[in-house]
């Protein structure tokens, strides 16, 4: 499933961004990128990526704002935040606000990115599946009720 996943990376530091993009492309993901929050939201709205990687600290529109918009517009799209090691409090705060996971910079190993993406996607799938099951079950219960009444 990774092959078809599209991932939007929003990172103002070109070097880091490029590193992530290169790695993810190598892993077979479809990768979209944006240098700031503004551009990131435009791409998000236009291309509807499956997962977002967002740096928390960016000028003008920062990662929190992006998180907030995505939360509102597409609550089921996983958002993974990237934060500096020294400011873990921010990451924790983002998770409280609804980020699905966080990655600390400097990124020790790109495997961590991939792992975070996989975990989030799996969770998204589980939630989606859970929702479907829930609805199915609900429908089914209603059907039984109808048949009985």
């Amino acid at each position: 499933m990774e092959q078809t996943l599209s991932i939007l990376t929003i990172e103002d530091e070109p070097l880091i961004r490029q590193g992530i993009v290169n790695y993810l492309e190598d892993q077979g993901y479809t990768v979209l990128e944006a240098g700031d929050g503004q551009e990131g939201l435009e791409v998000f709205r236009r291309d509807k990526p499956d997962i977002l990687l967002v740096d928390l600290q960016m000028p003008v529109i920062d990662g929190f704002e992006v998180l907030d918009v995505v939360q509102q517009e597409s609550p089921e799209t996983p958002v993974i935040v990237i934060s500096g090691v020294g400011i873990l409090q921010q990451a924790a705060h983002a998770v409280e606000l609804g980020a699905w996971d966080f990655i600390t910079k400097p990124i020790e190993d790109m495997f961590i990115v991939k792992h975070a993406i996989q975990k989030s996607w799996e969770r998204a799938m589980l939630v989606q599946e859970n929702k479907k099951y829930r609805e199915k079950r609900k429908r089914h219960t209603e059907e039984i009720h109808e048949q009985k009444s």
Partner: peptide, 17 residues
């Protein structure tokens, strides 16, 4: 833990269905 719960719940649903 959340994943565990989701898996468990989904499995129950699946089994039920």
């Amino acid at each position: 833990w959340e994943r565990s719960l989701l898996l468990q719940e989904n499995r129950q649903y699946r089994e039920y269905l």
